[in-house]
Design a protein around this nucleic acid. Structure first.
Lengths: 193, 193
DNA sequence: TTACTTTGTGAGCGAACATTCACAAACATT
DNA sequence: AATGTTTGTGAATGTTCGCTCACAAAGTAA
């Protein structure tokens, strides 16, 4: 799946609309207006609105996969790895807040089968990177073993998601990176033995 | 705000549609069909579709407020209080899974100002009940004080929300109450001194 | 210059949307 | 039996939706 330059621009515009006006705001009319051309031009680059959304979610999953892989590879300590992963996420969303849809894609659930699959893929990608790190930490005796690795992951991801949601709901009115790193630091302290 | 019997039936039908078909599925046509009458009859009970959604969210907030108040009142121990609160929530959503929209209402964000306000109210209600209990636990030396009460609340609520999301995304395929109580128990153990 | 591909335009399609309105049962009150 | 209120019907409203199509610039390659 290669994404062309113009396609990426459209995807970014779609993300902006979703974040600032919700799903109801994402119409072909609005999207074309934001791109500065007519509605029909959209169909030169995508064959349907559904394809635009699916491509966006797939792009986000692939991008996250790349970022998190690089993030985890260069460190040894599990705690540092986790901190690096979340810091990377905060960085990304601070730079591209319109892609917060990647975190709140539940709003798109049940729109179509393909979209559902793409949403699942994003969550699976995150899990793929974090779970091994947590298990590593448990094996090295750094993290609590009374709670399963899955539950620890659940706590981390749930807290991260709620943090991002509050950031958006307050119209990005606080420093998501600083507050987020502090929060994730607290959690890591809690789950350390 | 008094809700009539027929209005409540409509609200429940709307919740069912939202949970099983998403926001796009909630049309006046579908809603009327589920109620077994024509579209125009809806407007005997509500003056707009927006009013239906807002009333639903307000009803959920009020109902939750009542339930959680009763829940917290009859217990002393903060740990037991929290367990009771979450157990009550699991019970409610097991009985009324179509009202899961109360937890995932972010999907409705930015649909309208009134809807946004109603969503905020639901989150504020939860917070109102849980935060004092956590603070009480900290004062009594039961919960960790290295992490702020707000952060502890954040972890609890974030984990709860993700749990409910996974339950829905897997089509209610596991026992949300049993698994949820286990998860919340783990978290409570983590934050105990 | 010619020919081809890419990317745009603008009018227009049928379908679905929320909402309204004149009207009719059903029901309760007198 | 007569009257008034609730709650339904079914057709129709205008609007917006995603999408198509015949056509035209603009860019590329021979």
């Amino acid at each position: 799946m290669e994404i062309k330059k113009r396609q990426l621009e459209i995807i970014e515009a779609a993300g902006e609309i979703l974040t600032e006006s919700g799903l109801a705001g994402l119409t072909t009319k609005n999207l074309a207006a934001k791109m500065g051309f007519g509605e029909s031009a959209l169909y030169r680059h995508f064959k349907s609105k559904e394809e635009i959304i699916v491509t966006m979610l797939q792009y986000l999953a692939a991008d996250m996969d790349k970022r998190l892989t690089a993030c985890v590879a260069k460190l040894e300590d599990p705690v540092e790895k986790l901190k690096a992963v979340f810091n990377n996420q905060f960085d990304f969303f601070e730079k591209h807040p319109h892609f917060l849809i990647a975190v709140f894609s539940e709003g798109l659930l049940e729109e179509s089968k393909k979209i559902n699959t793409a949403i699942m893929q994003i969550m699976a990608t995150k899990k793929k990177h974090l779970l091994p790190v947590i298990k590593q930490g448990q094996q090295e005796g750094i993290f609590e073993t009374a709670t399963s690795a899955e539950d620890l992951l659940h706590i981390l991801m749930g807290s991260f998601r709620l943090h991002m949601l509050q950031w958006r709901m307050t119209a990005f009115s606080f420093d998501a990176k600083q507050k987020g790193n502090k929060l994730m630091g607290s959690i890591l302290t809690l789950i350390k033995v």
